[in-house]
Design a protein around this nucleic acid. Structure first.
Length: 644
RNA sequence: GCUGUUGUAGCUCAGUGGUAGAGCACUCCCUUGGUAAGGGAGAGGUCGAGAGUUCAAUCCUCUCCAACAGCACCA
């Protein structure tokens, strides 16, 4: 006699086991029509599942967030059925819902291409129109394995084989098509609706392991209705317009070319942006009591052997030799990291505990041979500059330094316009240096430090650096990809390997702990993110060209030159537009170039000693005396850390 | 690195088995115009690289390079 408690607190009694379908019908025809699935005591279930005991129940309708996920999951099933109907011999594997959609991985000799989409989508619409019910069955493990093996579905058979013994093997049928699936599903394929679209194909390794076969993955997106789908597609288009590669080209910030794959050619405007960020960082680091250093690019293999890089990191390093016969056995490598060089500076002379924590900073240019498929605009390159620093400290200083670091990073991110970022805690990787005891110590110290600093993080198992666990500070780009920017890593290994030590209060020699840390991560990546965050329309202090002085007639040119010179003297990044073009044209061009302020000078202004300021892309104008305009713009262009 | 797609003028893109086209940008001329593209003329490309098929290849085939999407990688 189950008593069903509904979200409004009302209770309904039933004689014996009931299904969600029955309950919904008992409540009313509207709900019976709208209910797609249900949540029983917090667990999502098929509407057709039966309930035999007292339970709290909530129906899932199309408006609930769970419904969107189910639409996508069900859509993946329909995709799989469609594909197998059209392309016999294709094996199914897995097909989950993901953010904004779903995918399905297929095993097939000839991978799918976008040319297949139209046909597959049409078949999917057929299946949805048929509105077959999703029927759940629970099978014996051996039966299921036999069934899929006989069908030639060896990936499915393998999945079942590897399911934990406690797992119930559930099978879902839609019409004649059968799949292994945990569920739950909506009532039938018709509940999916028609607001879906196949988006792209990609290779994906079976079980995410590059040693396994590559499957053919089809991505799709699915929504409640056409309006939502259209909105999503529009949002994608808008996001593409923010792409830093596109904006970098349009604004003339940088370029990339084949002769220097993975390295950035910074153009004058891009480099000005870079320098603005660098100068800002330098001021922040000075105040935070970092000491800036500069260390060599090319370093002998011997140091990389000692640090462990030669063993753990060699395939990512650029190695250099010279032609000279006497020197031919000498192997140098371009530094992929700055840490070993910083230890060399630390190791000059005898250090005292009084010098700790010693914060050594470097805008260090690093080279790493990244896999070709990993390169991405200026966000993932082979040559980049880190805002790197290593804090040499005693173990008991780790927490305090972490607190200070997180505060510094947060303040800096805020100044750049990033108010939200995520933190991941990456612990010991499979390929690592140092004993388990040392890793226990390092991970424990970092966790304690996070607790004290009040940092909330998500776990990212096995992704730490080879020498220590790390915190990753993650920012998101325009199309929703996550990028690690800041990082804080606790390292007990390198000081040991490179024999760093200091004299403690009691006169004994001790090993310092090294905290590897970066805030921007790399200038290249951070600037890429920054461009996308602002869509190239930077706050004034960051804009590479802050003001353009544009003339209306040639005779205004002398005063325009004078105005530009005054702005330049006041520290404003200004450029002149004296072209033989109408002012309309100049306005359009500078809006395109994302110039924040246009200063217009015509005959009248030249005579009166004024300029007209227009904030692009807006239309409002204000007329000011030149001196006032200069003072105003100079104040506005002041970096946030230098404001009064 | 793997799978798929793409590579034509500085940029964005069209196009064809018979050695290429548009718009914008660029150069020159006219125009001095008051806040979202003034007018005219001109110049510019071994169609990513190499090999093959063909009487003939930018187009078809193969290899390589690069970019893009995803996977894997990511200190």
């Amino acid at each position: 006699m189950p008593a069903i408690t509904l979200p409004d607190g009302s209770i309904r009694q039933f004689d014996g086991a009931v299904t969600g379908t029955t309950i919904a019908a008992a409540i009313g025809p509207g709900l019976a029509k709208a209910a797609l699935a249900m949540e029983v005591d917090g667990k999502l279930r098929d509407l057709s599942a039966s309930i035999s005991q007292d339970a709290k129940l909530r129906f899932i309708t199309r408006r609930d967030p769970e419904a969107l996920e189910m639409i996508r999951h069900d859509c993946a099933h329909v995709l799989a059925e469609a594909v197998q109907a059209l392309y016999p011999g294709t094996q199914v594997t897995i097909g989950p819902s993901i953010e904004n959609g779903f995918y399905y991985d297929f095993a097939r000799n000839d991978p799918f291409t976008p040319d297949h989409f139209a046909k597959i989508e049409a078949k999917m619409r057929e299946i949805i129109a048929r509105n077959d019910a999703f029927l759940r069955e629970e099978w014996e493990r051996e039966d299921a394995i036999r069934f899929f093996t006989e069908k030639g579905e060896r990936y499915k058979a393998e999945l079942i084989q590897d399911l934990p013994k406690s797992e119930i093997i559930s099978i879902y049928k839609q019409g004649a098509w059968t799949d292994l699936c945990r569920g739950p599903h909506m009532r039938g394929t018709g509940d999916i609706g028609t607001a879906f679209k196949l988006m792209k194909v990609a290779g994906a390794y079976w079980r995410g392991d590059h040693r396994n076969a590559m499957l053919s993955r089809i991505y799709g997106t699915a929504w409640r209705d056409q309006k939502e789908l259209d909105a999503y597609l529009l949002q994608l288009e808008e996001a593409e317009k923010r792409d830093h590669r596109k904006i970098g080209k349009e604004m003339g910030l940088f370029h990339l070319q084949d002769e220097a794959v993975g390295s950035v050619f910074w153009h004058p405007k891009g480099w000005r942006l870079y320098r603005t960020v660098e100068a800002y960082m330098r001021r922040r680091l000075d105040i935070a009591e970092y000491q800036e250093v500069k260390t060599p690019q090319l370093v002998d293999r011997k140091l990389w052997e000692a640090s462990g890089h030669w063993e753990k990191f060699r395939e990512n390093m650029f190695v250099a030799r010279v032609e000279d016969e006497d020197e031919k056995d000498r192997v140098l490598a371009l530094k992929p990291m700055n840490c070993p060089c910083h230890v060399q500076i630390f190791n000059q002379g005898l250090r005292s505990y009084r010098e700790l924590p010693l914060r050594m900073a470097e805008f260090g240019a690093c080279h790493r041979y990244e896999p070709s498929g990993a390169l991405h605009g200026i966000m993932r390159v082979r040559s980049f500059v880190q805002d790197d620093a290593h804090i040499f400290c005693a173990e008991e200083q780790i927490a305090d330094e972490t607190v200070r670091f997180v505060a510094l990073l947060s303040s800096i991110y805020r100044d750049f316009g990033f108010t939200e970022f995520r933190v991941k805690f990456s612990d010991r990787p499979a390929r690592r240096a140092g004993t388990d005891a040392v890793w226990d110590q390092a991970e424990g110290a970092l966790k304690d430090a996070c607790r004290i600093a009040g940092v909330e993080y998500e776990l990212n198992p096995g992704e730490g650096a080879f020498y220590g666990p790390k915190l990753e500070f993650v920012l998101r780009d325009a199309i929703g990809r996550d990028w690690q920017c800041g990082t804080l890593q606790v390292d007990f290994v390198l000081p040991e390997r490179l024999d760093a030590e200091y004299v403690a209060e009691d006169g004994a020699r001790r090993r310092p702990v090294m905290l590897h840390r970066a805030i921007l991560g790399s200038f290249e990546r951070f600037l890429g993110i920054l461009i996308e965050e602002h869509a190239g329309r930077f706050p004034l202090w960051l804009a590479p060209v802050q003001v353009v002085v544009a003339t209306i007639v040639d005779e205004a040119a002398p005063f325009a030159r004078q105005a530009a010179a005054a702005l330049q003297k006041a520290g404003v990044a200004v450029s002149l537009d004296l072209r033989n073009e109408k002012i309309n044209r100049k306005v359009v061009d500078h809006i395109d170039q994302r110039v924040p302020v246009l200063a217009v000078i015509g005959r009248r202004e030249a005579e009166e000693g004024t300029i007209v300021l227009r904030r692009l892309p807006g239309r409002d104008q204000e007329t000011l005396k030149l001196a006032d305009a200069v003072a105003l713009l100079a104040a506005e262009a002041t970096p946030p850390d230098l404001r009064g």
